[in-house]
Design a protein around this nucleic acid. Structure first.
Lengths: 168, 168
DNA sequence: CACCATAACTTGCTCAATCAAGTAAATCTG
DNA sequence: CAGATTTACTTGATTGAGCAAGTTATGGTG
């Protein structure tokens, strides 16, 4: 592939750096999600919901709070909650303290599904991300992702949520 | 958030490493794509198609080859080509050498759209990924992504395509 | 050269994500 | 304390992605 002379483009090490990250960005999420989907019929997003609820007091959270934890719009969460409710993994009820709020709570089956899916997911993360790196590289990666997050956060309209709770 | 004693989970540095990467995995793609979408009405995927074609001989490629470059299923590419064709950025025609193949070619308008979108996209990549890192960190990141790609590639069913051409 | 398998798409169906509009319950304001 | 605003969702409509089935063209076999 030749570069057209008319357009700016990256070269050399910078191109290689970007290409490497771009490839990971494209393939890692799919590789992480596939076992979850295959073995438990859960998308990564749905697993994130179960994770947040499983680790919350009484295994319940208000929808808005849950949306923040899951990096989700309320609309998307609402749809996902409908799906999980249809599978009896989750229940919604009006919050007695504030009638505007909805309380989403894990059912016993939901907690069970979370407990069943978690070891495999942790194993996948370990296998694909942690084991391939040396201790020094993990340290480097922490600093690198910290910097990238900083750049994203200060980039105009992009405001990650206050506490991006991540699963596993 | 307390950890339930019943499930395996990551802790300490390992958790932090994973959480940092997961956050980047979640926010960086959106941050990279947003300006492209906003300013040119192009998804990252569509831009990738334009990039691959713009850099191909005669600005044309067979659909199957293009799907490989864009890391896409043929079905997804076909839909995207329909959309781009409707905007007159791309044309499809039967390949005279092999009647089974379809040749996708950039129109003049398509090449123009690619040229218009590229500088901004390169700037976004530079601002969000390259500028925040030191030269040493870029080097570290290249090696880290190399290792992660290796882990993904050897992970059971996950076979990235032979030559994952990345834009910019 | 007829037949069958394969390759290269295309298309219909379904699911999930977003956006915008709607509803209901606080909360603020004059 | 009545009316307006805000908050917290929910839902209808549109759009993109994947899967599976369909179509057309090639290539191999006896």
């Amino acid at each position: 592939m030749t570069q057209p002379a008319t357009t700016a483009s990256l070269t050399g090490d910078e191109l290689e750096t970007w290409a490497g990250l771009a490839t990971v960005l494209e393939w890692l999420p799919a590789a992480l999600d596939a076992p979850l989907e295959r073995d438990f019929g859960l998308t990564h997003f749905e697993y994130g919901i179960l994770y947040a609820l499983a680790n919350a007091p009484d295994h319940a959270l208000r929808m808005t709070v849950l949306a923040g934890y899951a990096n989700s719009s309320l609309s998307r969460l609402s749809r996902a909650a409908t799906r999980l409710e249809a599978r009896a993994l989750l229940e919604r009820s009006r919050d007695p303290d504030d009638g505007r709020s909805t309380r989403a709570a894990l059912t016993a089956a939901g907690l069970e599904a979370y407990a069943a899916a978690t070891p495999g997911h942790v194993a996948t993360v370990t296998r694909l991300v942690l084991d391939p790196l040396t201790a020094a590289q993990k340290r480097q990666l922490r600093e690198i992702t910290r910097r990238l997050q900083g750049a994203i956060r200060t980039d105009g309209a992009w405001q990650p949520p206050p506490s991006p709770v991540r699963e596993a």
